[in-house]
C-alpha cells in the first residue's frame, strides 16, 4: 500500500526459555528490511524463517486467528501488553508503529498465574478453571422457552455485550501490578448478572468464580486500571465494581 515506506532494520530482544522449569534468557536478533505494512506477527514469521534457515530453533509464540478475536496471541512488547498501540491485540499491531533502527523487547506474559511453557508461550489454563467454576448459565440443551419470551432492555443487552466482548487473552493479568484477574472475572460475572437469564444464579456464580480466582493464585485488585488501558476490547473497570457488588451481596445473604 505504501511504496513510500522503506523497510525497517530492527534489533529484537526476545525471551527464550526451553521449558517450564528451565531458566530463560534474552537473545538478540537483527532483522533487515521489514515492511512497515507487515503485522508484528508477520515480522516474527520472517524472523523464524530466518532462524530455520540458520539451523536454529524458531521462537515459539501463541497465535491463531490473526484478526484480534481468538485471544490466543499474547506478547509483552516494549513495556506493554499487546505492544504500543491502543485497542488491539498483538496480531493487529503493525510494524509502522516502530521506527527504523529501533530495539524491540519481546517478553511473555508474566504472572504467577500464567507460567511460561516455552519461549513466549504461557499457560492460561487458570482462566478456563475459573470459567468452569461458574462462568455459565445452568441450562441444558433443549426445552427452552422462546427467545423472545423474556424482553431485555436494549441498554442492559448492550452493556452485557460490552462485557461479553472479552477475548480471554490475559493482557489484564499480564499488565496488572498485582497479577489480578479481576477484569476477566468481572467481565463474565457482569455479562451474566445483567441478563435475566443469568441473574437467577448470580450469587452462586460470583462466589464460585471469585473463590476459584483466589485459589489459582491471582492477586488482589487495587483498582489501578492498567488492565482497562491495555485491554484490546476496552472492557471497563466499572465491571469490577459490579463484581464486587455481586460478590458482597451474595456473601451478606450467607
Amino acid at each position: 500500500m505504501s511504496e513510500q515506506h522503506k523497510g525497517l532494520n530492527l534489533t529484537l530482544k526476545v525471551w527464550r526459555q526451553k521449558g517450564p522449569k528451565e531458566k530463560g534468557h534474552f537473545e538478540t536478533y537483527s532483522l533487515q528490511n521489514i515492511s512497515p505494512d507487515s503485522s508484528f506477527l508477520e515480522m516474527m514469521d520472517v524472523l523464524n524463517e530466518q532462524l530455520v534457515t540458520e539451523d536454529k530453533e524458531p521462537i515459539a509464540f501463541d497465535h491463531d486467528c490473526r484478526e484480534g478475536i481468538c485471544g490466543m496471541c499474547s506478547l509483552y512488547i516494549n513495556g506493554r501488553a499487546h505492544g504500543p498501540d491502543e485497542d488491539i491485540t498483538t496480531c493487529q499491531l503493525h510494524m509502522r508503529k516502530f521506527k527504523d533502527g529501533e530495539t524491540i523487547t519481546v517478553e511473555p506474559w508474566r504472572s504467577a498465574g500464567f507460567p511460561v511453557i516455552k519461549d513466549l508461550i504461557v499457560d492460561r489454563g487458570a482462566f478456563d478453571k475459573i470459567m468452569a467454576a461458574g462462568g455459565f448459565v445452568s441450562v441444558n440443551t433443549g426445552g427452552i422457552p422462546d427467545a423472545n419470551a423474556i424482553p431485555i432492555s436494549k441498554d442492559k443487552a448492550d452493556e452485557a455485550m460490552d462485557a461479553a466482548s472479552c477475548i480471554g487473552c490475559g493482557a489484564c493479568v499480564a499488565t496488572c501490578k498485582n497479577g489480578s484477574a479481576m477484569l476477566f472475572v468481572s467481565a463474565k460475572v457482569s455479562q451474566l448478572a445483567l441478563l435475566p437469564q443469568g441473574k437467577i444464579e448470580a450469587a452462586r456464580r460470583a462466589k464460585a468464580m471469585v473463590a476459584k480466582m483466589d485459589e489459582v493464585g491471582f492477586g488482589n485488585c487495587t483498582n489501578t486500571g492498567a488492565c482497562e488501558v491495555e485491554c484490546p476490547k476496552g472492557i471497563s473497570i466499572a465491571n469490577i465494581a459490579r463484581l464486587n457488588r455481586e460478590f458482597l451481596k451474595a456473601k451478606i445473604q450467607d
Binding site: 455459565f136 441450562v139 422462546d146 427467545a147 443487552a157 455479562q191
Partner: peptide, 10 residues
C-alpha cells in the same frame, strides 16, 4: 432460544 438462555447478548 438455546443461545438466549445461555446469556448470549444478541
Amino acid at each position: 432460544d438455546q443461545c438466549v438462555a445461555q446469556g448470549v447478548p444478541f
